[in-house]
């Protein structure tokens, strides 16, 4: 269920897996960035919010600094390629709050044409290499990243391999590959009996 109904009572009843209450800080976040830019749901009891692309930095700043949220620990940044759907990419961020022992998942929908989103290294410095890896394997650019280069693959590699339209066996060798010859033992010396 991705669309948040306007009425709070309706929200409490309609959630798919469980009747889960929305935490107060999510409501404050919604007030801050606007209802259109935020959707909340609980797949398998894991709090997930979908934030629109231009509000992501504001939202993360709020989640890090708010007294009830206190999501100080950056855990993971990755992307999923929903090829055939619009928007095509979905960047997924996982955060942990160590003092409050809670987790959250933040998703950002990114369409194929621009494949770009603002960087979050200003708020969470740990996201540096994670964003580079996302760029390397999915081709999603992070505007404002200090050093957006390839990290897992070499610079001469063309294409973004984890996209669903990249064939798994398409290799781009760096050195010329040789054909391994079968060695025959015709040049040997007989060892003594």
């Amino acid at each position: 269920m991705l669309v948040t109904p306007p009425n709070r009572l309706l929200r409490l009843v309609i959630y798919k897996n469980n009747i889960m209450d929305i935490p107060a800080y999510i409501e404050r976040l919604e007030e801050k960035i606007g209802t259109d830019n935020l959707q909340t749901n609980y797949p398998h009891d894991q709090l997930t919010i979908t934030v629109s692309r231009d509000k992501i930095q504001e939202a993360l700043q709020f989640l890090r600094d708010d007294d009830e949220a206190l999501f100080d620990h950056f855990m993971d940044l990755t992307a999923v390629d929903y090829i055939g759907k619009q928007p095509r990419f979905q960047v997924v961020i996982h955060l942990v709050s160590i003092p409050k022992s809670q987790r959250i998942r933040i998703k950002i929908n990114i369409d194929d044409d621009s494949a770009e989103m603002p960087t979050i290294t200003g708020i969470y410095p740990a996201a540096d290499w994670f964003e580079r890896e996302c760029y390397d394997l999915y081709g999603i650019r992070f505007a404002g990243h200090p050093n957006l280069k390839r990290i897992m693959l070499y610079d001469e590699f063309e294409g973004y391999p984890l996209r669903k339209d990249y064939p798994i066996r398409k290799r781009q060798p760096r050195v010329e590959l040789r054909k391994p010859e079968v060695r025959r033992s015709d040049e040997t010396v007989e060892p003594p009996r």
């Binding site: 394997l137 390839r150 990290i151 897992m152 693959l153 070499y154 391999p161 984890l162 798994i168």
Partner: peptide, 14 residues
């Protein structure tokens, strides 16, 4: 890094 990138995610998807 990246000298041992063995495409774990792509292999699992296949």
């Amino acid at each position: 890094i990246g000298y041992l990138h063995r495409a774990f995610e792509k292999s699992v998807e296949a």
